[in-house]
Each structure stands twice: as C-alpha cells, then as structure tokens.
Computed example of a mutant assay.
Amino acid sequence: MFTGIVEELGTVAGVEEQGDAIRLSVRAGTVLEGTGLGDSIAVNGCCLTVASTDGDTWTADVMQETLDKTSLHGVAVGDRVNLERAVTVEKRLGGHIVQGHVDGVGEVLRREPSEHWELVEVSIPTGFGRYLVDKGSITVDGVSLTVVEAKDASFTVSLIPETLARTTLGTRKPGDRVNLEFDVIAKHVEKLLAGGYLKEQA
C-alpha cells in the first residue's frame, strides 16, 4: 500500500526484454534506504517487487499484464520515473490510500499555466468517470491529487510548484500517457451496492 506522495524521481537505467516480460532497472537513492529483496516500490504508480539491488540501482520484473495495462510499456533508458516505497504503520498518510494497482492509462489533454500553479486535464478510460467526484482523490503516475473538475471522459487537477518540481507531472505534455488509479473505496462501494449486499444486511 502507498500514499501517493512521491519520495523521489528515479532514472531508468536498463530495460531487458524477456519476451513476455521486461526486467526494469532503476537508479535511485532515497527509496533504497532500508529496502530489501521482495519489498515493494511504486514506479509511476505501479507496484513492483524489488528483485535485486546493486549500489544505487534496483531491478524489478514487469510481466506482460502490467505492460499491457500501464504506461510502463515503451519505457526507455534515461526516462524519469516517480518512486515511492510502501507505506509503514508509522508513516503519516499524507495523500490517500493507493494500492499501486493501475486501473488504466489516461492522456494529458491540455495544460494551462498560471503564476503559482498549473491546471492539467487528463482523459480517462471509458466507464471510469463514475469513480470521480469534484474534490475527490485520483492517482496520476503514482501522485495523489485532488480532482478540480470531474467530467465523463476527463478530469482536471491543479499542480502546485512542489508537485511540478518533484514529480514527472512537471514535464508531462499533451499527448503523453499517464497511469491512473481510481479510489479503491469507491470501487468497493459500487460492488456492494450492485450486488445488493448492503440491502441484505439492512
């Protein structure tokens, strides 16, 4: 589990093709502190398992399912990526509950810079608009953000200078693909209501 508060920007150091998977190597610093084999690190919002470490570089195996459903498909050496270690019980929940399980890929539609912040609009896959509400939470490339305006096929967020400077969202441009994870609580509530479970318990 994660919070959507990016700890650092890492750099892709290697991409080894393995047929139906890739072995991804990422150069980092902060997220390697106290991290061991089998631990989880979110890369652009995708929960990956540390397979090995070597100095300031760690590797993870990324299976075909993840490549098919996320923007990690096509990742290249030199790309910057958002990194966050799994949350511990002692850590403040500064963002919201993030699983690192990407629901789909959106596309940056437009950016409107302002003096102190920037408005960004992102498209959403068909059918996911029901999970968004104004002032609700959304995870974009692993970053916990507050929805400004929820639309049927897109949403907008306002990015403060800290987010622009410390995450990949500062350099994403119209046409770029981003990983999206919608609020897991909304998805569970929908399933309960659709199945009549809450009515049965009443």
Rank of each mutant, 00 (worst) to 15 (best):
V133N: 08
T70H: 02
V120T: 11
R80P: 13
T126E: 14
V87I: 15
C47V: 05
K135M: 11
L109P: 15
D103S: 05
E118S: 11
S144M: 09
G129C: 02
T66R: 04
V75N: 04
G45K: 08
E118C: 12
A150W: 04
K135W: 08
A42C: 10
G104Y: 03
G136V: 00
D134S: 12
V50K: 03
D103K: 07
S71G: 08
S52G: 12
E118M: 13
R110N: 15
L119F: 13
V108D: 03
V98Y: 00
I124R: 08
V143D: 00
T146E: 00
A86H: 09
V98Q: 01
E107Y: 13
G136E: 03
T70K: 07
S123W: 00
H96M: 01
N82L: 04
G34V: 08
I160W: 07
D103M: 04
G38L: 08
I160S: 06
C47A: 10
G136H: 01
S154K: 08
S158P: 05
M63A: 12
G127H: 06
V147T: 05
E84A: 06
V77D: 01
R80I: 06
V89W: 15
G94C: 09
V157Y: 04
V157R: 05
H116G: 13
E84C: 05
L119E: 15
R80T: 13
T70W: 00
T59K: 15
D56Q: 14
I97H: 09
K151S: 15
V50F: 03
V62W: 00
F128G: 10
L83M: 08
G95P: 04
V50S: 04
Y131S: 02
L83Y: 07
L37D: 14
A51C: 12
I97C: 11
S114K: 15
L32A: 11
L109G: 07
G129V: 01
M63V: 14
I160F: 06
D61F: 06
T126I: 12
L72S: 03
V143S: 09
L67N: 01
D103V: 03
V31D: 00
A86N: 07
T126H: 10
T66L: 01
V31H: 06
F128P: 06
S158Q: 06
I41L: 07
P125D: 02
L32F: 08
D152Q: 15
V140P: 00
L93G: 02
P113W: 10
I138G: 00
L37Y: 12
V143I: 13
H101G: 00
D141M: 05
G78H: 02
K151Y: 14
W117V: 11
E112H: 09
V108H: 12
I97S: 11
T53F: 11
R92W: 04
T70A: 02
V75Y: 02
D103A: 07
R92K: 14
D39H: 09
G104K: 04
T139M: 09
V148N: 15
H73V: 13
A86K: 10
T139S: 10
T59P: 04
D54Y: 05
G136K: 00
V81W: 00
S114T: 15
S52M: 09
E118P: 03
I41P: 00
L93A: 07
S123D: 01
E162L: 12
L48S: 06
D79A: 09
L83W: 06
L37S: 13
S154Y: 07
G129R: 07
V105S: 02
S52E: 11
G34N: 11
T70G: 03
G136N: 02
G142I: 05
D56L: 11
L72Q: 01
V98G: 01
